[in-house]
Simulated scan of single mutants.
Amino acid sequence: MPPTAHHFTPVYPLHEPQHSFRSKQYAPPRKRKRQQGNDDDSDDSDTNVEPLQPVQSHDINDPYRVAGWPENIPLPGSSFPHSPAVKPKGRQLSSDNLQKELAGLKPPLYVPPPGEQDTTPSLRRHHLSVLTTILHTSLLKHDFVRAGRAWGMILRTDIMGRPLDVRTHGRWGVGAEILMRKFSPENIIDEQLYNRTIISDEGFEAAKDYYERLILQFPYQKTNPNAISSLTFYPAMFGLCIYEIQQKCRLAYERTRKDSPEVEHSDSELGLNGNPEEETSAIRRSELASAASLAARMDELMLSPPFDTYPSLLQLRVSIALWLADLYRTTADSDDDDDENKERASMERAKARRCLDRLKAAGVTAPQMLMDISD
């Protein structure tokens, strides 16, 4: 009875040669012996040929046997048995060709969105790169009107049937800067200090409305906490509000010192009446009221997570608390409500310390200047 062939662990009897099944495929053909008496005219050469015996190998770990190659045949070369990887000879499909082939199937597996049938994505990408170049060139030249037009066209551009995300590549920050500068007057030259740009009221309002829209459009999501969301937009908007308050008060202070015809804010907005001392007091009260209103809005927002532990908001709230403490202290020196303002100043300093403690609990080191001032 012949030995039984196993697939995974071949076991060969000791009296039979050990060779693999594949070695028989590469072995040379053996001539069959003809029986004597059946054919008297048979050649002696056929009857005298001995069959080739396979080379015996008593090592079951023989690499020739494992690779299925007999020992009596030369190796094929090319680092046998480790043959090089064969690259597919088929045609490599690009994304555009793949979409066309999927759309041509019946039924189609891909349906191009509206507007993509006639315009290739490569042309749209080229169009987007041209608009981006125009945007940055206009910003370098301080041509904010033209930059705003290019930015609007970029936002209306679709790639592969999907609109561009305003949060990518810092486009949201560029949009806010364009809106602020777009409505601003020309640069005002300060004879004593430096050149500066005055942001108009229309620019501040347009930028704040823009941030409000972004906050509603991209709220914070727990499933994607690292994405650009309202956590990013709130500190930017509050910083813009601080800049607006300080610019209005700075221009009003300068008008009390000298007659500045370039200042466009009206006297009634800050309660000015012509007396320098009364004007200074009115400006300080207006600054205090605006800062207190901003702080109240931030406190309302920071009652709920994740805003109550967000480092950027906490650090900004520390700065506003110290700012309010100074305003309450200076207002107490020239106001009848001396005790009340001093108490509010101490409350704001305590608020700053609590925010610093939250920063430390979150593992964030606050600037040393804020820590020194709050002590």
Rank of each mutant, 00 (worst) to 15 (best):
D143Q: 02
P185A: 01
T309E: 10
D333C: 03
D143L: 00
K87P: 08
G175A: 05
N72T: 12
T232V: 14
E205G: 04
P88M: 03
L214H: 00
P108D: 04
V111D: 03
T120H: 15
I199N: 01
I134C: 06
L324W: 01
A362P: 05
D326E: 02
L155A: 08
A67S: 15
K222L: 12
S286N: 13
A103W: 02
G90W: 02
D333R: 11
L52F: 12
F183Q: 04
R297T: 06
Q56T: 09
L135C: 09
D201S: 11
F8S: 11
N97G: 06
P74I: 10
N273F: 06
D118G: 05
Y12T: 08
R124P: 00
G152L: 09
L356N: 01
T331Q: 07
R353A: 03
Q56V: 12
I178K: 02
P121S: 13
S42F: 08
P13I: 09
Q18H: 15
P163T: 13
K106Y: 00
P235I: 05
L231Y: 04
K24I: 10
T157C: 04
T137I: 06
E202W: 01
D267C: 03
S83T: 12
P76S: 04
F238W: 15
L288E: 03
G274M: 00
L155P: 00
N226L: 12
N273Q: 13
D267M: 04
R297N: 05
L105M: 02
E116D: 15
L98R: 10
L370D: 07
D43Q: 02
D43C: 10
S138L: 01
Q247E: 14
S184I: 12
T133M: 14
S293N: 13
P235M: 07
Q217I: 05
R349V: 14
V111F: 00
N61D: 14
Q53Y: 08
I73F: 05
L102K: 06
M369N: 14
S57I: 10
D46F: 05
E300K: 11
Q247M: 11
N187A: 13
E340F: 10
L131T: 08
K248M: 11
S266C: 06
E50M: 11
R213A: 06
M237D: 12
A176M: 11
S281P: 07
D62N: 15
E348T: 06
P114L: 14
P276T: 07
R250N: 12
P225V: 04
I228W: 02
T157R: 00
P367E: 11
M371G: 05
L324G: 01
L155F: 02
I159M: 03
P76T: 05
S200M: 05
R255Y: 07
E191Q: 10
D335E: 08
D118S: 13
D333M: 07
D39E: 03
I320H: 06
P107H: 05
D41G: 06
L316H: 01
S138F: 00
